[in-house]
Simulated scan of single mutants.
Amino acid sequence: MRRLPIRPLATLTALGALALTGCGTQTAGPAGDRSTASGADRTIRAHELMQVTKVHEETGMTLLEGPVFDEDGRLLLVDVTAPAGKPKVMRVDVARKTARAVHTDGRGAYTSAQFSPYDGRLYLTDYAHGEIVSLAPDGGDPRVFFSGEVDGAQMNPDDLAFDGEGNLYVSDSRGLSEGKARGRVVRVGRDGEEATVLADDLAATNGISFDADYRGLWFSELTENRISYLGLDAEGRVTSRHTAIRVDGGIAQTDSIAVDADGNLYQGLHGRPAMAVYSPHGERLATVEIPGRAEGLESATNIAITPGGTKAYMTVSGPAGGYLYTFEALAQGIRQSNGG
Rank of each mutant, 00 (worst) to 15 (best):
R91T: 01
L75Q: 11
L64N: 06
V68F: 09
A95G: 10
L64W: 11
A84M: 11
V68I: 02
E65D: 12
D79K: 13
R96W: 00
L76T: 00
G66L: 04
A99V: 06
V92T: 00
E71N: 12
V78I: 06
L75T: 00
T81C: 06
G73W: 14
E65K: 13
D70Y: 07
L76Y: 13
R74T: 00
V94E: 14
A84Q: 13
L76F: 09
R100K: 14
R96P: 06
D72G: 05
D70M: 02
T81Q: 12
R96S: 14
D93P: 09
D70C: 03
V68C: 09
D93Y: 12
E71W: 02
K86Q: 15
G85C: 02
K86I: 08
L64V: 08
V78S: 04
T81N: 05
G73Y: 05
R100P: 01
D79S: 03
L75A: 01
P87Q: 15
R96K: 15
P83E: 07
V89H: 12
A82E: 10
V78W: 08
M90E: 14
V78H: 09
K97H: 13
K86W: 10
T98R: 10
L64R: 14
D79Y: 04
V94D: 08
K97I: 01
R74H: 15
L76W: 10
A99I: 11
V94L: 15
